[in-house]
């Protein structure tokens, strides 16, 4: 397995309001541009929430149809990117619920599970104020090809797919799609504080799963 290349930057159209105006006037070249610009990112997002690429493609297809129908009502209080993603989130959520009835692949990591970033067993001292008794291993001493190996990437992909849904959206948008926190809050309807809690839980789970592969104790 090879390591996928970093994602290319996805710039927004320079003048969004005139771009939206073109869409509203039925400029099909503008619509093609819009689809081409966002398709890859939407597919990537949808793929993490549904059980197959075929369903992911359906979700994205439905998103575009909703965009076509809704562009006249788009009030530009957010960017096109966050508006389109909000539509995708809603469609993927509905689909995800439907699919889970037949495919038992719902989240294994419960949203109500113990939220400690690191198990309290690994600290000694007063509860909540302990010092490491089983400190983290030195990943920095591992060769790059181990840290970024296909197996490591595969483990992260699997773990992201098992995160509770809200954490998964936040991790996908922030750390995979490289969105700003304010855009993520806007697309998902979260406060900054909630977004950070979800990001913290998601990232902490990923780190702890990686620890199982890259080494626990030094």
């Amino acid at each position: 397995m090879s390591v996928p290349l970093p994602l290319p930057p996805r710039p927004l159209p320079p003048d969004e309001s005139s771009f939206v105006e073109r869409l509203r006037k039925g400029d099909s070249r503008a619509f093609r541009e819009l689809v081409t610009l966002h398709q890859a990112s939407l597919i990537r997002l949808a793929s993490s929430f549904v059980p197959s690429n075929a369903v992911a493609e359906e979700v994205v297809q439905e998103t575009w149809i909703a965009v076509i129908r809704g562009i006249d009502k788009f009030e530009q209080r957010s960017t096109l990117k966050t508006w389109i993603t909000r539509i995708l989130v809603n469609i993927a959520r509905t689909k995800g619920v439907k699919e889970r009835r037949t495919v038992p692949m719902g989240s294994l990591l419960s949203d109500t599970a113990d939220h400690a970033a690191v198990s309290p067993d690994r600290f000694s001292g007063p509860p909540g104020r302990g010092e490491w008794s089983q400190p983290p291993a030195r990943w920095s001493e591992l060769p790059e090809e181990v840290v970024l190996s296909g197996a490591t990437i595969a483990l992260v992909i699997d773990t992201v797919r098992l995160l509770p849904e809200q954490q998964k959206w936040v991790v996908m948008l922030r750390d995979v799609e490289d969105w700003s926190s304010s855009d993520v809050c806007d697309a998902l309807g979260l406060t900054e504080g909630n977004q950070r809690v979800l990001l913290h839980r998601g990232r902490s789970t990923l780190r702890s799963m990686l620890e199982g592969r890259l080494g626990v104790a030094s």
Binding site: P6, S47, V176, L206, R207, E211
Partner: peptide, 29 residues
């Protein structure tokens, strides 16, 4: 080291592309 691990975790997560195990990555439109 923990801080470095967390930064590493974020870096590795940035390399995933949402692909589904056992399926090829989604193709361009």
């Amino acid at each position: 080291e923990y801080l470095a691990q967390m930064r590493r975790t974020i870096q590795i997560t940035g390399h995933i592309d949402g692909q589904i195990k056992g399926e090829p990555p989604p193709q361009p439109l």
